[in-house]
Design a protein around this nucleic acid. Structure first.
Length: 813
RNA sequence: GGGCGAGUGGCGGAAUUGGUAUACGCGAUGGACUUAAAAUCCAUUGGCCUUUAAAGCCUUGAGGGUUCGAGUCCCUCCUCGCCCACCA
């Protein structure tokens, strides 16, 4: 047989697997199902590098392992092709996005195929296909129908580089999540999805998900639920009032001033003439500050006195009203009651501007009192002596009686802004009629096709390039039949990815987005694999849509992804993130071309370290993976070519034993996603086989049959090509990937004896072989008769003897 | 500042319920094969330690504790990574 040369057979098997359709998932299977999904990729201009590949290598190993274990596996792939990355690539390269997407998907698909990933390509979807986005538009109408899509004019995040608005989730520390440039605020009329209606459910249902705590806490943090109260402060000498939100109504007697955000509408009203110039200047200065500046931490507090006072509703004290940008206009009511004695920020502000600081909670270890969170109420009138937690309720009760306060739950999460002033997205299925106003389209009018146009560059005037396409804009009103204009904004790409996992269950349905029975069979996704970067975007949106679909009765489950797996990043050998701009990407294509083959890369991706930890790519390490596969090739071909003969029964027994031990260990490792140790175990297995072969040469059709079959099967999920090739060289029929997983016999994994470790005072001093059948007393006698042990005990009396059966003895002397 | 996670050889990393620390791989060194190289195969490879051997001692970020026994459990501290960050 030839030497191991992956070039000789990898593309052959790709074609063969494709032809025989071995990865097709059956909708009506009697087997238990397993839906394994990797995030569907953006087919951007940059090809996939070995970092991206890891994601798919993990999913593919899981899919193959589960298939061999008897599950009906759905492992599909598609393209998240709408959105800025694809569009920007198209603009930069002066091609139409549609053409760019076609080229890039082709390239990505070829890369996935050459890596040997087993997808059910009969279910391939593309979010830019009208057959797909028809249903994305259908979901828009569903949300509209359910009162969850609405239009509103307000200040929005605007990216001046990408020339579109962005959702809250898509702005990271004042920067656009896509291009990394500073965003601005711009007032525009926009479409929103009312995700805030689902805030509580999105929060509560997290508890039962098998997701990492990191991602769950990111979502909890993002939803940002806090319980508190709305409290009205009358403005002194006016009938007007200021409403504040606080989580600590118990501290109200310590509220020595109010602070309102500079953007608050009431600012003009409360500004006294004497302070007019100062306030106007402050408000203007604030506007000039970038979002980044405003969000800088450790920044010194700034603010200005309005010149007016409010009345504390319980203490009836006159408290000054200040204007400061440390209060955010968009959260709560945009105004706070400041309690400097018990809030660090208020304390800092009060100290700087010499405002009164009044302690209202104290406890025994309180010191100066300013750090006390909970304790007994002081200086709080009738509430003195109460515990702060109790006072919280009593005070809200009292305020409610006075008609000045009410309990309130607040969320940091805002509604999801989904309009984009860009060309490359699914058109929003809405028309504006001079007679009927805003009119949603009928389902029969879907899809609203995205017209092919020449200039797709956004103008930056807050309108999408589609406004210039008259044939698109001018239409008729579905209600009155009169002339109407289409909405020209397109939907956020995240709308497309909020339901794609359902489409895979029924990808070619042209009557419905999916058939309910198919969705209920395949969904929820059992294993969802991808990076952590989607924690508060895609993963929150998809959960929201799923709940809406459940409420509409389209599906019977409320969470889309039962288990979420965030794989660790593969970094460049220098430890940096791989990126095209840094020029440090390593693509699989070249490695395959130079002879390593896809299997070596796959072994390396999984062997490099725990699947959920970041690792640096190593070219030397890849050589090690290749050598391992070569040894597998060699030992298998020696077995195939061997001449029949005899094998000593002790060698046969040894083979059997290591085979079953290996099956046991690898099975457990794959169940636990411990791919790196599974590979290590297989390497040890092969090393052992070499040793045994050395002692007694391989003979055919004896103990070696099962051993080699098991070796190939155990390796198949990780290295599908070499195992398939060797499987067929052995003369086997069908694909190895459709075979049943090897099972181990527990009794065959047991040894007759074990290495007894003998410790004296906790230090290992001797190791002896001991039979499993020995009693504790016999073990102790065995140990005490050993010369070395005798030497260490040195005739001292043994105070204590600890025997761990099957493992060790510790003598305390 | 808050949350989550992690610190083990020259490097990536391994270690069921506390029970032989350093599996497996890389790198390195020596050897076999070869005219030579590559490839392959074999051996060695935590530190004190410098040629070998024996013996000993030390070693899982630092310090303490529990225990017959701690990488693993508890306390204090240090460092790094990721996420969030003036959310009242």
């Amino acid at each position: 047989m030839n030497r191991y040369n992956p070039k000789n057979f990898e593309s052959k098997w790709q074609a063969e697997w494709d032809k025989s359709g071995i990865y097709k998932a059956q909708d009506n299977s009697l087997k238990p199902k397993k839906y394994i999904l990797e995030y569907f990729p953006y087919p951007s201009g940059a090809a996939m590098h070995v970092g991206h590949v890891r994601n798919y290598a993990i999913g593919d190993a899981m899919a193959r392992f589960n298939r061999m274990q008897g599950f009906e596996v759905l492992h599909p792939m598609g393209w998240d092709a709408f959105g800025l990355p694809a569009e920007n690539y198209a603009i930069k390269n002066k091609v139409s996005p549609a053409v760019a997407i076609e080229q890039n998907t082709k390239r990505f698909k070829a890369q996935l195929n050459q890596m040997g990933f087993g997808y059910d390509w009969s279910r391939e979807i593309n979010s830019t296909d009208p057959k797909y986005y028809k249903w994305t538009q259908w979901f828009f109408l569903l949300l509209y129908k359910r009162g969850l899509a609405y239009q509103q004019e307000s200040l929005q995040w605007w990216c001046p580089v990408d020339k579109t608005v962005l959702a809250n989730e898509q702005v990271e520390a004042g920067l656009c999540w896509r291009c990394g440039n500073q965003v601005e605020k711009k007032s525009l009329k926009q479409w929103f999805f009312k995700i805030t209606d689902y805030a509580d459910r999105l929060l509560n249902d997290l508890d039962d998900l098998n997701w990492s705590e990191a991602i769950k806490s990111m979502q909890r943090n993002w939803i940002g639920k806090s319980k508190g109260a709305l409290i009205d402060f009358k403005i002194d000498g006016s009938s007007q009032k200021i409403q504040v939100f606080t989580t600590r109504p118990d501290t109200i007697f310590g509220a020595t001033f109010l602070v309102v955000a500079p953007e608050h509408q009431i600012v003009n009203l409360i500004t006294a003439d004497s302070q007019k110039t100062a306030v106007e200047k402050y408000v203007k200065d604030t506007q000039a500050k970038s979002e980044i500046e405003r969000q800088e931490t450790g920044r010194e507090k700034t603010g200005v006195f309005s010149g007016t006072y409010a009345i504390n509703p319980l203490s009836n004290e006159k408290v000054p009203i200040w204007i400061a940008d440390y209060v955010l206009a968009g959260y709560g009511t945009g105004a706070i009651m400041a309690v400097p004695a018990h809030d660090e920020r208020d304390f800092e502000f009060a100290t700087k501007f010499n405002l009164e600081i009044k302690q209202v909670i104290s406890n025994d270890d309180s010191g100066d009192g300013f750090t006390v969170n909970e304790g007994g109420m002081v200086s709080s009138g009738e509430f003195n002596g109460l515990d702060s937690a109790q006072a919280r309720e009593k005070i809200v009760q009292k305020l409610a009686e006075l008609g000045l306060g009410v309990e309130k739950v607040n969320y940091k999460m805002r509604d999801w802004l989904i309009s984009r002033q860009r060309y490359w997205g699914a058109p929003i299925p809405i028309v504006y009629c001079s007679k009927d106003g805003v009119v949603p389209l009928d389902e029969k009018d879907l899809p609203v096709l995205l017209p092919e146009i020449e200039s797709i560059e956004p103008s930056g005037d807050g309108r999408s390039p589609l406004v210039n396409v008259e044939s698109f804009v001018n239409t008729t009103c579905p209600k009155c039949g009169g002339s109407a204009k289409r909405e020209t904004d397109t939907m956020d790409g995240f709308a497309c990815s909020s339901w794609y996992f359902l489409r895979f269950a029924d990808p070619n349905n042209d009557k419905m987005p999916f058939d309910k029975s198919k969705a209920d069979y395949w969904l929820p996704v059992d294993e969802y694999i991808g990076g952590a970067e989607h924690a508060v975007m895609h993963l929150l949106y998809a959960r929201f849509w799923t709940k809406v679909m459940y409420d509409e009765g389209l599906i019977d489950f409320t969470e889309p992804f039962t288990t979420l797996r965030n794989q660790g990043m593969i970094l460049a050998p220098d430890g940096n993130k791989m990126s095209k701009s840094k020029g440090n990407t390593i693509e699989p294509d070249g490695l395959i071309e130079s002879g390593y083959g896809a299997d070596s890369i796959r072994v390396m991706e999984l062997f490099i370290g725990p699947w959920n930890q970041a690792s640096n790519w190593s070219v030397d390490g890849l050589g090690g993976s290749y050598r391992f596969l070569q040894r597998v090739w060699k030992i298998t071909s020696q077995y195939i070519e061997a001449v029949d003969g005899d094998l000593s029964s002790s060698s046969a027994q040894r083979l059997k034993k290591i085979e079953h031990k290996t099956i046991k260990k690898v099975t457990r490792d794959l169940e636990n996603l411990s791919f790196n140790t599974a590979v290590a175990t297989l390497m040890e297995f092969v090393n052992d086989l070499y040793k045994i072969k050395e002692e007694s040469p391989i003979v055919k059709k004896t103990a070696w049959d099962d051993v080699i079959v098991s070796l190939l099967k155990l390796l198949a999920p990780i290295a599908p090509y070499i195992t398939e090739e060797l499987w067929h060289l052995m003369g086997k029929e069908d694909s190895i990937h459709l075979q049943a997983w090897s099972v181990f016999d527990e009794s065959l994994t047991q040894d007759d004896d074990f290495e007894l470790v003998i410790q004296i005072n906790g230090k290992v001093r001797q190791q002896l072989r001991a039979l499993n059948s020995l009693s504790q007393k016999e073990l102790i006698d065995l140990a005490l008769n050993d010369d070395k042990v005798k030497k260490y005990i040195n005739q001292n009396p043994v105070k204590k003897t600890i025997v761990v059966p099957g493992k060790l003895i510790n003598f305390v002397v």
